[in-house]
């Protein structure tokens, strides 16, 4: 191989070499500038996203429960009326069983109707 072809090959190696060295370190640089920070914050992002979704879900549930004031007023009035109309519950059981009563002169018929003195 003569000197000029050696120099040509050397030139090709040089250019390739410089490009590859720059590429390798530039790729590493970009990976650590963008990809790695993104990957590291990924679980946090997921967490944040999930909590955001949960928040939204909660809000949507709240929205569902959020009824207008007039309706609330009507419901309140209905409940009030219903509760006001209620009577005390009484026992409505009728019985024919003889009730045992212990004697007491205070409630004795004899003293109240036959012996007036």
């Amino acid at each position: 191989m003569d000197q000029s072809s050696i120099l040509q090959e050397g030139g090709a190696i040089t250019i390739t070499g410089i490009i590859v060295v720059f590429t390798a370190l530039a790729v590493l640089s970009l990976v650590f500038k963008y990809v790695i920070p993104f990957l590291i914050t990924l679980p946090e992002r997921f967490k944040k996203l999930r909590s955001q979704e949960e928040k939204e879900e909660l809000l949507s549930k709240k929205d569902a429960r959020n009824v207008p004031g007039e309706v609330n007023a009507v419901i309140a009035a209905a409940i009030h009326a219903y509760l006001d109309e209620l009577h005390d519950e009484e026992s409505t059981v009728l019985t024919i069983q003889q009730q045992q009563k212990s004697y007491s002169p205070w409630s004795s018929k004899i003293y109240s109707t036959h012996r007036l003195r």
Binding site: L7, G11, T14, I18, F22, L25, A26, L28, K33
Partner: peptide, 23 residues
């Protein structure tokens, strides 16, 4: 990470010497 490029730039010395040695 952009400082990595400075490490790459200094390696030009390797290839310049390579060409010099061929000469």
């Amino acid at each position: 990470p952009k400082l990595m490029l400075l490490g790459a730039a200094a390696q030009v010395g390797i290839f310049a010497t390579f060409i010099g040695a061929l000469y």
